[in-house]
Design a protein around this nucleic acid. Structure first.
Length: 925
RNA sequence: GGGCGAGUAGCUCAGUUGGUUAGAGCGCCUGCCUUACACGCAGGAUGUCGGGGGUUCGAGUCCCUCCUCGCUCACCA
């Protein structure tokens, strides 16, 4: 809490590299980011908790722009609420990422010419753990580098002992509630990863393939055939029936008879099924392959058909369960796609191939390795989702949770309404082993939180289920498992659950967000968060998603090295419209990040000016300055500051719903980060720097009591501006704020913990300073219009002889501000009793400024300009008059609108007469 | 195929319940190294708000329709 020691000797250039690391370390040493549960209102403290749990990056991940964007957004929100006085907690962590991490290690093994089966399960898991222990912290270190203000004392990992305990608890609880079951059915199978996948992990891709028409001869009348159509002819070897629609005239007499399956040479029946057969598609007859198609499985179950398997787990032709010798010897071991070609050849030779049509259909691919997914009959563990989905739907419908942007809410509801059971078992080695034990002696199945030493029924040895759980089975517990669940006495859980905002990309809305909501209700009885903020994707200039494999990525650390973390953060936040994608050019970092770099430089230079000109002597607090001593520029900038604070607050919106339910007016409000950024930018750049700062130069140089006022206002306004900007650009604001010569013991050491700016409604728009700005702008425009060299000074007269409304007041203002106008517009101002001819600047107050510009002014040009302006004004005024004389408008439009139009009418009418006068004097007619 | 969204300045996007002369950033043009800043300052140009129709005193905003993109779900074999 030491008094700041101002160091006005700021280097001319901000050098992020030289300060960022040290600053971050200071923040950590001061424990600025460590949350204290006892300060949370829920645990008896006096602060509102504000909690975000980080979407845990894969433990093997290295930072890319997507992480950069995601975590910057979260950091902005956390830093904002931390300043606003909340007990802010941002929980960081990583995900063990089952398939993804296993793939990484398998690739390493492949490079050594080995597979995971060569080294065995234990060695594989050990090796993976070691790899994770050595490299797993990388991405979290990188997040520190971009300023993430996480509470690192709470860093979590989905495969840690604590979270593994939560996973077991969740599994057992669901099992006890009858929501987990073992199912025998067709699931999505990745023949490269050798595991089953959930519906969400098998992604659709629209592809153009072939539709093969094949005819099967009737067993007792081989001359007669029935044709079917299929996209996967190799699976015909596992056909067990041909299904037709019962009402289909074409096949009615065939129902109940049998056909002989070519190649496999087995006899299969023709059956009728009204649910699974569309008479309009293909030939109206469908081959039924229960073991290799989810639909056919359903039909096979309905008709109690056998389910032979002809593909191995690796996707090669094989005579599996119930297949006998359906696959001929020369096809055994053939890859499924090769087999497809060969089966077609064989059918062609046998005269069974009718035709091949091009066919567009969607094919599912493994979301991790892009291999075409094979439907496969197997035993898996499932979670019944319908009962879990109900409260998750209700939460959104009852506005306990809002999803931003709005359009994703419909997607969420749509998905939950049609939800299907979740396959949670994976035939992998890296992950949480399923807590189920089998007794081979008595067939007893034990589902347990703890490893059972023996079968509880017969005492024999038990063996644990070989499978592991879907990675997302640990992720969906994240908002409470990271806070100590299942230990319900956990102080963190009490103080910080439910959390507040969940910030992520729409891609994992179903994988993760929806499941977390279901998990929150299932295990905590409460929503895990009240706001879901789905931000866009980082793309290149061709709108292609950035990715390392495509080579169009940007490394945030490269940007940091070039322009600094603040420039990176500012650029992505400023460019982030609600739900919009962020476009960046990986080939031109200079151009992509110029908004951030330019802004940071500007801020630095404002700071340099301020600290140099304000000096190192402690500035008096604004509150101690008599309001009567404030000049109009002071009042103006303080009004502008209030407007800026109001705009930022409005853009950020309410931090949480009142009483746990969003009201309609706040449901879609807030988290408009680009608007917040723009408001803060406009204030500090276009108002503070462009106008106020300029206005103080003379006053500061003059010294005396008035300079004391200017110093106080400057410091006050800049202090507030820095605090508005701290969440976006935490490093540079920390450096500048720390050097402001302000004496306030309550101020604290770090801006990161300083209070969020509050409005002071004593100051609003200031019409008097606006008049000064108008005068300056008018003179600048004349300069440009007549190409008056910057070196030339001009003379201007304020015409007080004109019939202006406020001539006397305007005279007083302009006389008083003459020095400022003169310096900024490079123009000498005097007050004239009788106007000379010259360029005329009309002021909105009704006064005007005459600039003679002898020898320069082009009367003809000035006349033309005035005439054009007059014409335009008259047209607009005519339409306005028409509107105001139309009863339809005056009667039906809201009163305030009509009033505004009337006021405008008065202004325009006056301006028209002024303009007419101007035209008269210039054009002489 | 179901559901949803988008088309506004050269590019990326704002535009809140219909109501002043439709805005910002980047880019572009002109002039300036004015003692904080050329990563800057001052000035400037550019829009039949995708096409067509409708409702209204008034439409970028609401309705219909068409065109073009995009997202998302889906058991057309």
């Amino acid at each position: 809490m030491s008094k700041p020691t101002p160091q006005p000797d700021l280097p001319p250039q901000f050098d992020p590299a030289s300060v960022e690391s040290d600053l971050y370390k200071e923040w950590l040493d001061a424990e600025l980011f460590v949350a204290d549960p006892n300060r949370s209102r829920r645990a008896g403290g006096d602060r509102e908790p504000f909690v975000i749990v980080m979407p845990p990056p894969n433990v093997t991940a290295v930072l890319h722009m997507g992480h950069g964007l995601n975590n910057t957004v979260q950091d902005v929100l956390i830093r904002w609420r931390r300043m606003a006085g909340d007990e802010a907690l941002w929980v960081p962590g990583t995900d063990h990422a089952g398939i993804a991490t296993q793939n990484v290690i398998e690739k390493q093994l492949a490079a050594e010419g080995k597979t995971r089966f060569d080294i065995g399960r234990d060695a594989f898991v050990e090796r993976t753990s070691k790899f994770v222990a050595e490299t797993g912290g990388t991405i979290l270190e990188q997040l520190r580098a971009i300023g993430a203000s996480c509470d690192w004392t709470r860093t979590a990992y989905t495969l840690s002992p604590e979270l593994s305990r939560a996973v077991r608890e969740a599994f057992v609880l669901l099992h006890e509630r009858g929501l987990i079951y073992r199912g025998h059915r067709v699931i999505h199978w990745c023949s490269r990863c050798l595991t089953s996948l959930s519906d969400e992990e098998a992604e659709h891709t629209e592809e153009t393939g072939n539709l093969y028409y094949i005819r099967y001869p009737l067993t007792d009348d081989p001359a007669r055939t029935i044709a079917i159509a299929t996209t996967r002819p190799e699976t015909m070897l596992a056909d067990v029936a041909v299904a037709v629609h019962p009402d289909d005239e074409r096949y009615r007499d065939l129902i109940g008879r049998t056909v002989t399956l070519p190649i496999a040479n087995v006899e299969i029946p023709i059956i009728a099924d009204s649910i699974g057969v569309d008479p309009e598609f293909g030939t109206g007859a469908v081959k039924i392959t229960p073991a290799h198609d989810a639909n056919d499985f359903e039909m096979g179950t309905r008709h109690a058909l056998p389910m032979p398997v002809v593909l191995s787990p690796e996707g090669m032709m094989a005579n599996g369960a119930d297949a006998d010798s359906r696959v001929p010897a020369d096809l055994l071991g053939a890859d499924r796609f090769e087999a497809r070609e060969r089966v077609v050849q064989m059918l062609r030779h046998a005269g069974a191939l009718v035709k091949i049509e091009s066919h567009s259909h969607s094919v599912r691919h493994c979301y991790r390795c892009d291999t075409v997914v094979e439907p496969r009959l197997s035993d898996q563990w499932f979670v019944k989702m319908k009962p879990l989905a109900e409260p998750a739907l209700e939460a959104v419908r009852a506005r306990r949770i809002r999803i931003l942007p709005e359009r994703w809410e419909a997607v969420y509801v749509n998905w939950l309404e049609g939800i299907r059971d979740w396959n949670i078992s994976r035939q992998l080695w890296w992950g949480h082993r399923i807590p189920v034990w089998y007794c081979d002696a008595c067939s007893h199945v034990t589902v347990s939180r703890d490893d059972p030493p023996a079968c509880p029924r017969c005492g024999s040895t038990v063996r644990q289920d070989e499978d592991v759980l879907d990675t997302w089975f640990s992720s969906w517990l994240w908002p409470f498992s990271t806070l100590g669940w299942p230990d319900t006495r956990s102080v963190d859980l009490k103080a910080f659950y439910p959390t507040d905002d969940l910030v992520t990309a729409p891609e994992i809305l179903f994988f993760w967000v929806a499941r977390m909501i279901m998990g929150g209700y299932a295990f905590m009885g409460e929503t895990p968060f009240h706001t879901v903020y789905l931000h866009g994707t980082v793309r290149d200039m061709q709108h292609v998603k950035m990715s390392k494999s495509l080579g169009n990525g940007i490394d945030p650390l490269d940007v940091r090295a070039l322009y600094g973390t603040d420039a990176l953060r500012y650029t992505v936040i400023a460019g982030l419209g609600m739900g919009a994608d962020v476009m960046l050019d990986p080939n031109d970092l200079e151009k992509s990040f110029s908004p951030g770099r330019n802004f940071v430089t500007k801020l630095w230079n404002i700071g340099r000016f301020l600290l140099t000109n304000v000096g190192s002597e402690t500035v008096r607090p604004l509150a101690s300055i008599d309001a009567a001593r404030l000049r109009r520029a002071d009042r103006w900038i303080l009004g502008a500051l209030n407007a800026a604070i109001a705009e930022c607050d409005a853009a950020l919106g309410p931090a949480r719903p009142r009483n746990g339910v969003w009201n309609q007016s706040e449901l879609r409000a807030g988290l408009r980060l680009s608007e917040y950024t723009e408001s803060a930018r406009r204030f500090v750049w276009n108002e503070l720097a462009d106008w106020y700062l300029e206005s103080t130069k003379g006053r500061l140089a003059a010294g005396g009591p008035d300079s004391e006022v200017a110093r106080a206002v400057l410091a006050h306004a800049f202090d507030a501006a820095l605090r508005l900007l701290q969440p976006i650009v935490p490093f540079i604001t920390e450096v500048l704020w720390g050097r402001l010569p302000v004496a306030d013991e309550a101020r604290g050491r770090f801006i990161a913990r300083a209070p969020w700016p509050m409005r002071d409604d004593a100051f609003g728009p200031d019409a008097e300073f606006e008049l000064v700005r108008e005068a300056i702008n008018g003179i600048r425009q004349l300069r440009a219009d007549y190409s008056i060299p910057p070196g030339d000074r001009i003379n201007a007269s304020l015409d007080i002889g004109a019939a202006g409304r406020n001539a006397a007041r305007d005279q007083a203002i302009v006389t008083e501000e003459a020095a400022f106008i003169s310096r900024v517009a490079r123009c000498d101002v005097s007050v004239a009793q009788s106007p000379e001819t010259g360029a005329t600047i009309l002021l909105s107050s009704g006064s005007r400024i005459i600039v003679p510009l002898a020898g320069v002014i082009n009367v003809e040009k000035e006349c033309r300009k005035a005439k054009t302006e007059l014409e335009r004004l008259e047209a607009q005024l005519a339409s306005l008059n028409g509107r105001l004389s139309n009863p339809g408008f005056t009667d039906r439009a809201p009163a305030h609108v009509v009033e505004a139009e009337r006021a405008k009418q008065g202004e325009w009418t006056m301006r028209r007469s002024q303009l007419a006068e101007k035209v008269m004097s210039l054009c002489g007619s």
